[in-house]
Amino acid sequence: MVLTQVRKGVVEYCVLACLRSAPAYGLELVERLGTNSSLLTSEGTLYPLLSRLRQQAWVTTTQVPSAAGPPRRYYEITDEGQVALETFTATWSRFTTDVRTTLES
């Protein structure tokens, strides 16, 4: 239960961090995040999250033809998404330091 609640608050920022360097399509993001099993449990949780990020204007999408099947939807972080990620990163750093200090005291 605890991991589920923490994950809900941070996975969207992990997706934005994955998009910092280059646009990616959904399956790429699943593979990247899937290497850290505590971040993503299934594809079914990623696509609704990407839809929310699009609605918030934190990502944009582009359809790109694929030789291996239907066109792929690539996601790219926007300037607003970058600001949100930077804000989260600063907040997360302070938050985790405070939590660690409290747990170790």
Rank of each mutant, 00 (worst) to 15 (best):
E80P: 15
G26N: 04
Q55M: 04
G69S: 12
R52P: 05
A24L: 07
Q55S: 01
L53R: 09
A67R: 09
A67W: 01
L46F: 06
S37R: 07
P70L: 07
T78V: 07
G69D: 07
T62F: 10
I77G: 12
D79W: 11
A57K: 13
S42H: 08
L39F: 08
Y47H: 09
V30S: 08
S66V: 00
Y47L: 04
G81F: 12
E43Q: 11
A57G: 07
S42M: 02
Q56F: 11
I77A: 09
L33Q: 10
L50S: 00
S42G: 10
P48K: 00
G26F: 01
W58Q: 12
A68I: 07
T41Q: 05
G69N: 12
R72N: 06
L27Y: 08
N36F: 15
R54D: 00
N36W: 08
A68V: 12
R32Y: 06
S51I: 01
T35R: 13
P70K: 13
R72W: 05
T78H: 12
T41V: 15
G44S: 12
S51N: 07
Y74F: 10
Y75H: 10
E43G: 13
S38K: 03
L39R: 07
P65I: 02
T41A: 13
E43H: 12
A57C: 06
L40G: 08
R73Q: 13
